[in-house]
Amino acid sequence: SKIRITWGDKTWEWDGDDEEVWKRILEWARNLGDEELWRHVKEWVDK
C-alpha cells in the first residue's frame, strides 16, 4: 500500500506502510524544516 501526504499544494507518496516507512517519513518531515508538518506526522506515527 501507499502512504500519501498532502500539505498545502504539494503531495508526496511512499510505498508501504510499515514502521520503517513511517520513520523515514518522520525524518523527511524534520529535514523539510516545517515544524507544523513534522508535528502532524508525529501524531500519525504515535497512533
Score class of each variant (00 low, 15 high):
residue 42 K to Y: 11
residue 47 K to Y: 05
residue 5 I to R: 00
residue 45 V to G: 05
residue 18 D to M: 12
residue 27 E to F: 05
residue 30 R to Q: 09
residue 19 E to W: 08
residue 12 W to F: 13
residue 22 W to G: 04
residue 6 T to C: 09
residue 18 D to R: 08
residue 13 E to P: 01
residue 24 R to T: 14
residue 33 G to W: 08
residue 21 V to K: 03
residue 39 R to K: 14
residue 42 K to N: 08
residue 19 E to M: 13
residue 11 T to M: 12
residue 46 D to H: 04
residue 23 K to E: 11
residue 17 D to Y: 10
residue 24 R to N: 14
residue 45 V to L: 09
residue 36 E to S: 07
residue 31 N to H: 10
residue 14 W to F: 08
residue 2 K to E: 02
residue 22 W to F: 10
residue 47 K to N: 11
residue 37 L to W: 08
residue 26 L to D: 02
residue 14 W to H: 01
residue 14 W to T: 01
residue 11 T to A: 13
residue 40 H to S: 14
residue 22 W to C: 03
residue 11 T to F: 12
residue 25 I to H: 00
residue 14 W to V: 04
residue 16 G to Y: 15
residue 4 R to H: 10
residue 9 D to I: 01
residue 38 W to Y: 15
residue 43 E to N: 13
residue 3 I to K: 03
residue 15 D to Y: 09
residue 33 G to M: 09
residue 31 N to V: 11
residue 29 A to S: 03
residue 8 G to N: 12
residue 3 I to G: 02
residue 27 E to L: 08
residue 42 K to F: 08
residue 42 K to G: 04
residue 45 V to P: 02
residue 16 G to A: 15
residue 5 I to M: 05
residue 33 G to D: 12
residue 35 E to C: 07
residue 15 D to M: 08
residue 41 V to D: 00
residue 30 R to A: 14
residue 9 D to E: 12
residue 2 K to F: 09
residue 19 E to T: 13
residue 22 W to H: 08
residue 38 W to M: 15
residue 36 E to F: 05
residue 45 V to W: 12
residue 1 S to T: 15
residue 25 I to W: 01
residue 46 D to P: 07
residue 45 V to Q: 09
residue 11 T to Y: 13
residue 7 W to H: 07
residue 32 L to K: 07
residue 3 I to W: 02
residue 40 H to A: 09
residue 40 H to Q: 14
residue 42 K to P: 00
residue 35 E to I: 05
residue 20 E to D: 14
residue 6 T to S: 11
residue 10 K to M: 14
residue 2 K to L: 07
residue 39 R to H: 10
residue 3 I to T: 04
residue 39 R to Q: 14
residue 33 G to F: 08
residue 9 D to R: 00
residue 13 E to Q: 05
residue 42 K to V: 12
residue 28 W to I: 02
residue 26 L to N: 02
residue 35 E to H: 05
residue 9 D to M: 01
residue 10 K to T: 13
residue 19 E to P: 15
residue 11 T to K: 03
residue 25 I to Q: 00
residue 1 S to I: 15
residue 20 E to C: 05
residue 34 D to I: 10
residue 44 W to R: 06
residue 19 E to K: 14
residue 20 E to H: 14
residue 29 A to C: 06
residue 39 R to F: 10
residue 21 V to L: 09
residue 18 D to F: 12
residue 23 K to V: 12
residue 2 K to C: 03
residue 3 I to E: 01
residue 46 D to C: 02
residue 13 E to W: 06
residue 10 K to W: 11
residue 41 V to L: 12
residue 27 E to H: 08
residue 43 E to M: 07
residue 29 A to R: 00
residue 8 G to Y: 15
residue 10 K to Q: 13
residue 41 V to T: 01
residue 8 G to R: 10
residue 15 D to I: 11
residue 2 K to H: 08
residue 24 R to A: 13
residue 4 R to Q: 11
residue 19 E to A: 13
residue 38 W to R: 10
residue 6 T to M: 10
residue 10 K to G: 07
residue 2 K to V: 09
residue 29 A to P: 00
residue 29 A to M: 02
residue 42 K to T: 13
residue 21 V to Y: 03
residue 15 D to A: 10
residue 28 W to S: 01
residue 26 L to R: 03
residue 14 W to A: 02
residue 18 D to I: 15
residue 20 E to L: 14
residue 47 K to L: 10
residue 26 L to P: 00
residue 27 E to I: 09
residue 41 V to H: 00
residue 42 K to M: 13
residue 40 H to F: 15
residue 25 I to V: 14
residue 18 D to L: 13
residue 13 E to D: 08
residue 38 W to L: 15
residue 6 T to H: 10
residue 28 W to P: 00
residue 26 L to M: 10
residue 26 L to H: 02
residue 28 W to N: 00
residue 2 K to T: 08
residue 26 L to S: 04
residue 1 S to K: 15
residue 29 A to E: 00
residue 44 W to I: 15
residue 42 K to Q: 13
residue 47 K to I: 13
residue 37 L to F: 15
residue 12 W to C: 01
residue 22 W to T: 06
residue 37 L to T: 02
residue 44 W to N: 02
residue 16 G to S: 13
residue 36 E to C: 08
residue 40 H to T: 12
residue 31 N to G: 12
residue 22 W to M: 07
residue 22 W to V: 08
residue 21 V to I: 11
residue 17 D to K: 12
residue 41 V to K: 00
residue 41 V to M: 05
residue 26 L to V: 08
residue 34 D to E: 05
residue 19 E to D: 13
residue 4 R to M: 13
residue 23 K to Q: 14
residue 33 G to K: 05
residue 35 E to M: 05
residue 4 R to V: 14
residue 36 E to P: 08
residue 27 E to R: 03
residue 31 N to D: 13
residue 21 V to A: 06
residue 44 W to P: 00
residue 32 L to G: 05
residue 43 E to Y: 08
residue 20 E to R: 07
residue 40 H to Y: 15
residue 2 K to Y: 08
residue 47 K to G: 13
residue 15 D to K: 03
residue 2 K to S: 09
residue 13 E to L: 04
residue 15 D to R: 03
residue 24 R to E: 08
residue 1 S to V: 14
residue 28 W to D: 01
residue 40 H to L: 12
residue 4 R to D: 02
residue 43 E to P: 01
residue 30 R to F: 13
residue 6 T to Q: 14
residue 45 V to C: 10
residue 44 W to Q: 07
residue 23 K to Y: 13
residue 17 D to R: 07
residue 34 D to R: 01
residue 33 G to Y: 06
residue 6 T to L: 09
residue 47 K to E: 09
residue 11 T to P: 00
